[in-house]
Each structure stands twice: as C-alpha cells, then as structure tokens.
Design a protein around this nucleic acid. Structure first.
Length: 485
RNA sequence: GGCCCCAUCGUCCAGCGGUUAGGACAUCAGAUUUUCGAUCUGAGAACAGGGGUUCGAUUCCCCUUGGGGUCACCA
C-alpha cells in the first residue's frame, strides 16, 4: 500500500457555482501534507459535467484558493509535466482507457435509455429492491453489441463489477472498510456525450499524474470500491486513501449553502482573514500534539501528519471562527491592517490610509471581521449623525435633562484650549459635577450626540480625532433636537 | 430502505487500559471601565445505552440507539 515515490497530491474541484469552503478545507490538508513531505500539490479541474461547468467558476476557484494562500505546483493555469490539468481537455485519454477496459471485458457498452433507467428505478423502489443498474446490457451477445454499435445507437460504457467477492478500502485514518462487490453498481464510466464520469477521469488522472495519496472528503468513501476495481482492471497500483470528515451545518447535515455560507467569496467579503480561516479549518479535523489552537500555515506544515486527522463530524462553528479572526486582526501590525481595510471603507468611499491608521488604536481590538470597520467607524467619516431624542436621552433622565447635560458639556468643551482627550475628559467631569449630573449620564448623552450611537470607541479619543468643529456642531445639533423634540 | 462512516462538555479538539477525564470557543460570575470591546480571575458543563474481554474500561470487541454519508449519463 505504501510506496516510496515522492508525494504527489491534488485537489480536484469541479467548476460549478461559487468556490466552496469545502474545497479550501480539503485543499488545506492536501497542501499541508505535500509541503510537509516535500511533495507536490496539484490543482486539477474536474469539468466533465458540461452542463454545469463554467469558466467563471473555474476562475473563481483559482482566485479563491490564491486568496487563502494555498498555491499549487501544477495546474491548468501554471502548467506542469502532466498538462493539461483540465479534464475537459483530456477526452482522448479517457476514451482510450475506456476502450481498453471494454476490450479486456472489464467494461461494456450499455444502450439503455434514460427512460428505461428511470422506469427501472421506479420498479425497484416500488418493490423495495436495492437501487442500481440491472446489468441488462451486460448480457448482450457480441453480435447484438456489434449491431447496435454499427447502427450508431447512443450508449454509455459501464464498469462490469464482479458479482462476487469483496473489495477492501484501506483508509489511512479509518482502517479497512470492507464492501461486498454485489452492493456496487455497474458504474457509468463514459457518458453518451463521450465525456467520462468522475469515476473514470479521476482514476485515470490520478494514476497518470502519479498521485500517491488521495485525500478527499468522506462522501467519496462508498464509491472508492469502484475506483479500486478500476485500478485493478487497469492493472495499476492504487494510491493511499484518506477520507476527511465532512464539514457540517448546525443540524449535522453536510454543509450546504441553504443552511450556511459556503462560498469563499462570502468569507472574503465579510472580512475574514485567510490565515484565520485556514487556522479554523485546520481545527475542524486535525490537531497538534500539545492541544494548540492558534497556529500559522507554516506551523501546520511543520507538524502535519495524516495520523492526527480526526474522523468525527465537525459542525462549522462561527463563534470560534469569529474569535480566531478577531485574534488575528488584533495581531496585525496597524499598517498592514489599514492596507487590508481598503475594501471595507464606510459607504464604499476611498481609503485614506493615513486617517485609517489614526482610527485603528480605537478600533483594532474591537474588530471581529474587517467588515465591522465600516459600521464601527462610520461616524468618523459621516458629515453628521442623526440620533433620535430617545437615543440622546440617558436612562432615567428626561430630554430636558439631556439637553442640559449637553449644554454643560458644550460649554466645557468650548473652553478647551487644547482639543485633546485628557483635557476634554477633565473639563467634562468638572462640568458634570458642577451641574449635578453623573459623569456616566453626561458621557452617554455626549457619546450619542457625537457618535450617533450608545456603543462606540472611547469617547474623548474619538472626539479628539473628529476635531473640534464637527464635535461642537454635533453637540449643538443634538441640543437643538432635544429642545425642539 | 440497502450499504458505508461516525459517536468525550452546547461546539471544536486532546485522551490511544489505571487521569481529580485536559484545552479552546461559547455561557455565567467577578475585576477593570465613560459605553462596547480587549484583558485578567473564577464557575458550571461530557465519556449515548447494554453486553462482553481484562485485576481494571472513556480507551479493545459485539449489539442497540442516535447522527451522517451514499445509492445519477453530478462531482
């Protein structure tokens, strides 16, 4: 089973729809394994479904994987010794191999129509039989086959699965999985459009491309016997298999976009840091010896072993992702954070990095996601804020009292010779004391007046940054609003 | 339903025959505090059930239960 060839692994997404977190998840483990063992990591595009595959989706996969930082040594866009790496461009190879299989008797043409197959399925369902192809065309005489072929009848090529015996999948993390051949369907290998199915293309490519370890999701485990049977039919040594657990929704079902964000584009738009996302994904199914939770991709590469991948079913836990993301954001050098914030400015305005840098001491530790910046820093960028009377009025106080608090504050602030936080705070505390209000209440009224919300970064530091004119104007506007209702 | 996989706090992971069953997120309480956040302290919280094997099972085996995956000319 094991071999001493240099490690070659791959991730083989199919370009349908948005780039999926599951792809990044599987890519991560393949990548870490390859890098750890000094092997190669390849990207292969499995676009044999002509109905659903799109170029846009393929481009999005490239971009998304590059965004998270999982780069490939060989792939459709970077080339490599086994190009092409796009299955739609390898049709001849599959057809040739399918023909070999037919010639050796390991596969056979099947002329059954979609209608017959559907009817068959219905019948099996009604009789509560096991679902699957009944092998009708396997019984066809060579003459009948010849005739049908000569007549140009549409057909597929099916694998002639042995009716007896069993196939054992040696899974690196799960041990041996024994499956009776009788329960394996005569899988279609070549579709009537001449394109291969996943099963054929996958096996042929993995062999031809020298893949040593197939690290893929658990959902493939039941079709692995088909693949093993194919390797056997071709006379090839199979790679090592390792099935990763599936990422789950809250209800434990396989992660799906109906119940969870699954698009990597979404994670980027939300402002998750690639390094945080990768760290999180690594935690879902793998662990480091000393129980460490926070580690870089480099750390993971150094420590990675397949033996430590888990088999239990991880639920995608956003709370933990958010915590990790906040942690990584806090650890970023401010200049770097400012750079990454470019795409996350309030109201989509252009990013003034010098100013962003000034706001960061107030906001960096409060961000869980980069997108939080737009809302939390909004008041720094807005012309004015528009709190309501109710918002401006501290609990247990009246609007009139709120107006009085703000008047006292305005007076104190106007008298500030230096517009800095310490001076403002001292003056405001004194004003509160002399006018008989509690610091807390006056500060809250002022906070809402200036920032527009009862939750904000530290008040006086924010005001220092906002500048005298805008602050005083906002306080005046708030007093006005409170007085006029 | 057949086949297959999985099963430790609410969640993620550690444990690979003998532990007060550990860590993290989350939760709760306290400290700090101009709000929020961050930070620091502390607390509650788990071996699905039943049989074996063994001097001894969370750990090994079997059954049950529960959850999931898969049964396409999609991957």
């Amino acid at each position: 089973m094991s071999n001493d060839r240099p490690v070659r692994v791959r991730v083989a997404p199919s370009p349908t729809g948005d780039p999926h977190v599951g792809t990044a998840y599987i890519a991560l483990f393949n990548y870490a394994f390859a890098r750890h063992s000094g092997g190669r990591f390849l990207l292969r595009i499995e676009d044999t479904d002509r109905e659903r595959s799109t170029k846009e989706s393929e481009r999005a996969i490239f971009e998304a994987l590059r965004w998270v930082g999982l780069t490939w040594d060989e792939g459709p866009d970077v080339g490599g010794p086994f190009a092409p790496y796009r299955q739609s461009e390898r049709g001849d190879i599959y057809r040739r191999h399918a023909a070999d299989l037919v010639a050796s008797g390991a596969a056979y043409p099947c002329f059954c129509t979609a209608e017959r197959l559907a009817a068959l399925r219905e019948e099996q369902k009604a009789k509560k039989l096991n679902l699957g192809y009944d092998g009708a065309c396997r019984l066809l005489s060579p003459e009948a086959v010849r005739a049908a072929l000569d007549a140009g009848k549409p057909h597929v090529i099916r694998l002639a699965v042995p009716r007896e015996g069993q196939t054992v999948v040696h899974d690196l993390v799960r041990g041996d999985v024994v499956i009776q051949n009788a329960t394996v369907d005569d899988q279609v290998l070549l579709k009537s459009d001449g394109f291969p199915t996943y099963h054929l293309a996958n096996v042929v490519d993995d062999h031809v491309m020298g893949i040593t370890h197939v690290i893929r999701a658990e959902e493939w485990i039941t079709s692995t016997p088909k693949h093993l049977l194919l390797y056997k039919a071709f006379g090839w040594a199979p790679p090592v298999f390792c099935h990763m657990p599936l990422l789950r929704n809250r209800d434990k079902s396989k992660i799906s976009k109906r119940k969870n964000p699954t698009s990597l584009l979404w994670y980027r738009e939300q402002g998750y840091l690639p390094e945080a996302l990768l760290n999180f994904l690594a935690l879902m199914g793998w662990s480091v010896a000393e129980n460490r939770e926070v580690f870089s991709l480099e750390d993971m590469i150094r420590e990675f072993t397949l033996e430590r991948v888990a088999t239990s079913e991880p639920i995608f836990d956003f709370q933990k992702l958010d915590w990790l993301n906040g942690l990584y954001i806090r650890a970023l050098p401010p200049a770097e954070l400012a750079r990454r914030l470019r795409e996350f400015m309030p109201q989509g305005r252009a990013c003034d990095e010098a100013f962003v840098l000034k706001t960061l001491p107030l906001l960096q530790e409060r961000l869980k996601k980069l997108s939080d910046y737009a809302t939390m820093a909004e008041f720094f960028y807005a012309e004015a804020v528009h709190p309501t009377v109710a918002e401006l009025t501290p609990k247990k106080a009246s609007p009139v009292q709120a107006a009085d608090m703000l008047s006292a504050a305005r007076e104190a602030l106007s008298a500030c010779e230096d517009w800095n936080a310490a001076t403002m705070e001292a003056r405001c505390r004194a004003a509160a004391a002399s006018s008989g209000f509690k610091d807390r209440d006056l500060f809250m009224a002022l906070r809402v007046a200036v920032t527009g919300a009862p939750v904000s970064p530290p008040l006086f530091e924010s005001m220092a940054l906002l500048g005298r004119d805008r602050c005083l104007a906002r306080v005046a506007a708030a007093i006005e609003r409170l007085r006029t209702g």
